[in-house]
């Protein structure tokens, strides 16, 4: 499949908006939170994005933004005749009060710890995650430090 076709098919999906190509091999789009799981399932099964590169959580004040990066490794989507591998960048916006979204760790095994990290540092709740614990910070740590409203002390040593 050519990347142009991919973009057309993806933008026709329910809940998708602002689809654009930000580089030769990257499609960027926004997806509605409610139809995200169906979209991700389709992305993996129909378009062959078999690798979840990254899940980023951003505190946009007030709302949260989740950025998913998916990679097609086996070249089910091509860019012309080049060897380039295609990526999809998916943006999902969540409200600040209830930052919950459906987990995709059952689709991509590699997404498991990315979701745990987003929960740990940003406090996003992934519904259906098998093991949503803190991963980098110790158990019982209060707060989510990557949120912009997290209050911390800057310790400067006097010398």
């Amino acid at each position: 499949m050519e990347i142009k076709e991919l973009m057309q098919e993806l933008s026709a999906f329910k809940g998708v908006s602002n689809a654009s190509m930000i580089r030769d091999n990257v499609v960027k789009l926004d997806i509605d939170k409610n139809s995200s799981k169906e979209f991700f399932t389709k992305l993996r099964d129909d378009f062959g994005f078999e690798h979840c590169s990254l899940i980023t959580a951003i505190d946009n004040q007030p709302e949260f933004e989740l950025v998913y990066h998916f990679t097609s490794i086996n070249k089910s989507v091509t860019v012309g005749s080049t060897d380039m591998s295609v990526m999809t960048e998916v943006h999902v916006f969540l409200e600040r009060d209830t930052p919950t979204i459906e987990s995709i760790s059952d689709l991509w095994g590699g997404a498991n710890w990315h979701e745990r990290e987003a929960f740990d540092l940003m406090g996003i709740y992934f519904v259906g995650h098998p093991d949503l614990r803190r991963v980098l910070l110790p158990e019982g740590f209060a707060g989510h430090p990557l949120r912009k409203d997290y209050v911390y002390e800057i310790h400067e040593e006097e010398w």
Partner: peptide, 18 residues
């Protein structure tokens, strides 16, 4: 404003039980 790092080892270690 936000700097996110993806480390390849993060996911590789997460797959250790497999």
């Amino acid at each position: 404003y936000r700097w996110k790092i993806k480390s390849p080892m993060f996911t590789t270690i997460s797959a250790a039980p497999h």
